[in-house]
Design a protein around this nucleic acid. Sequence first.
RNA 1: GGCCCGGUAGCUCAAUGGAUAGAGCAACAGCCUUCUAAGCUGUAGGUUCUUGGUUCGAUCCCAAGCCGGGUCACCA
Length: 596
Amino acid sequence: MNIELIIKDQVALAISTLYGQTIEAEQVQVQLTRSEFEGDQTVMVFPFLKMSRKSPEATGAEIGDFLVTNLKEVSAYNVVKGFLNLVIDNNYWIDRLNEAIADEKYGFVPVSDEAELVMIEYSSPNTNKPLHLGHIRNNLLGFSLAEVMKANGNKVVKTNIVNDRGVHICKSMVAWQKFGNGETPETNGKKGDHLVGEYYVRFDQQYKSEIAELVAQGRSEDQAKEEAPSILETREMLLKWEANDPEVRNLWRTMNGWVYTGFDETYKTLGVNFDKIYYESDTYTIGRDEVLRGVREGIFQQESDTSVWANLEKEGLDKKILLRSDGTSVYITQDIGTAQLRYRDYPIDHMIYVVGNEQIYHFQVLSLLLDKLGYKWGKDLFHFPYGMVELPNGRMKSREGTVVDADDLVAGMIDVARAVSMELGKLEGYSESEKEQIYHIVALGALKYFILKVDPKKTMTFNPEESIDFNGNTGPFIQYTYARIQSILRKAKETGIAIPGKVDTAILNDKERSLLKIISLFPEVIKEAGMAHSPAVVANYVYDLVKEFNSFYHDHSILNEPDLSIRDFRLTVAQTAGKIIKNGFSLLGIQVPERM
RNA sequence: GGCCCGGUAGCUCAAUGGAUAGAGCAACAGCCUUCUAAGCUGUAGGUUCUUGGUUCGAUCCCAAGCCGGGUCACCA
C-alpha cells in the first residue's frame, strides 16, 4: 500500500484516539518532505490545532509519537513549526523496490475484459497541405495520451478522422487543373502532400489577385471575394463532388492518394499510428441525413434560401449553420456523422478529441447538437484542448512563410543528432544502418520530449535553437542516462555477475534512499497523468528520476564497489531505474537506445 | 464588444492551499588515469502582472483592473 494512504489513515486514527474527533483520512494533508529537512513524508498539523487545543509543536509531537508506535513504516519523526516530518523505515523502500523489480510493467494497470473503452481522436489532417509543427504537437499528444490511458487499464482505440473533402480540398484541385500541367509526385519526385500543398498555396495567390483586380474595377472587398472566378469554380466543383461527378471524383481520388502516401511516411517517421481511420467523405452524408432529420423534427430550422441552422442562443451560444444554401455540408456536419458512426462501431465509454484549443467553441456546439439530436452521449464528449505552438517571434503564419514543416523539422533534427553523435564518436563497432537508427531515435527523442514536457493545455514556444540542444532537460539527456545504465548491465553480464531478482539490504546511503523513493512514485505518476490527461506529468517525472540517478551514479561506483552485496544491490537499482526510464518514455512514444 | 484561456529568473518551463517558489538554457567557477563528461558540483539571477478579498497560511481560490492570445464565418 501507498505510504501516503497508510499515513493518512493512521493520522485520522490518531486524531480520534488523542482528541476524540472524527476526520476523514482524505482530509489529512501529506506531502513529500522538502529536501532541506530530515524525513520523507510530511503531515500538516495546522488543521488539527483546533482539535488538540495545543501548540503546533506539541500537537505534532503527539501525532508523531502515535505514528512511530503504531506504524512499522514510520521509524522516527521531527516537528518543525507546524510540519510533522516522518522518517520512513528503509524496509518500506526496499519492499517497494522489490515490487518494482518483480513487475516488468511496474505501475501499469493491466487491461481487463471489463475495462472501459476510450476512443481517442487525434491527428485529423486536412488533405490539402502537409503536416506542420502544430500537427506534430497534436500527433505526439494523441499518441502519448493513448499510451497513458492504456497504462491506466483502459481499452484504447486510436482513431483519425481525415478531412478529405470540402471547399479547401477543392481549392487545391482547381489550382492543379489550372496550373498543374499534369504534374505528379512521380514526374517531379516531390512528396505527395507537399505537392498538393503547393497547389493550395497557388490557389490562394490566384484568388487574391482576382480579388485585387475586381476591387480595382470598383467592387467592394466582400463582393470581390464572392465573385472571383476561382472561388466560383471551387464552389461548383464542390457541388459536382457531392453529386458524384465522375471526373471530379477521379481527380479527388488521385490527389488524395498522393497526400496519403505522403502522410503515411510522416506518420511512420513520427512513430504514430491508428487503430481505425474514418474519412469525412464517408461520414458527411450521415451527418447531413441527421441534420435533415433534425429539420423534420423541428430541432433545426431551414431558412427560405434552404440553408439549415441551429439556434443555440438559449444555451448562451450563437446561431450555427449546418448546411449551406446550396445544400453542401460544412465542417460540423461531418463531425455529427462521424460521432454517430463511431458509437455504432464501438461500445465507447469515453470519447476524447485531441483538437487545438481554438476549437473549444466548436466542440461545445457539437456536444449540444448531438444532445439535441437525442444522443445521450452527446454531453459526454471530451474535448482535450491543447495549446498552440508558437515560434520565438510569434505565431506561425503561412503567408509569411514561417510555418515549420513537419518533415523538414524531423530531417533537420536527425542531421543534428548525426552531427553530435559523430563528434562524440561513441558508436564504434556499429554498422551504418545501426548508427542511422540511433540518430533517428535520438532526434525524435529530442523533438518529442521537447514538446511533451510542456503542460498540454498551455501555449508553448518552439525555439528551434533550444530544440536541438541535447544537454540539460532534454530527451537525449534522458536517453543517455538509459544508455549508460545499459552499458553497466552489459559489463556485468560479460563478467558473469548475476543481478539478483530481489534485494534485502536495509543499509542505504542518501542517494540510494532518494532513488528508491522516486522509483516508488512511478505508479502514482501514471495515475496522475491519466487523470490530468497530461503526458507532461510523465516527462517531468522521468526527468527527476534521471537527475537523481545521475547524481547517484556520479557519487557511487556500481561495478567497482568492493562490497559484493552492495554492488549487486546497486546493479538491481540501476536496472530498475533503466526499466522505468524505458517504460516511462514508452508512454511518451519515445524510444531509448542501448548505446549512444 | 461578448465568451474562453494565459501572465512565475534574461529565455524555455516546473511547483495536490503549506516551510527559504524550483529545473534547464544563457553567464560565471570547478570536476575526466576511475562503470559513457549528451554527465556531475557550485555561484549569481524573483515585487510569482497590479490592487483588494477568503485563510493559521495564497504562485495556486474569489473579485476588479492591466497586458497577451483564442473564438464568435454559407472556413476548417
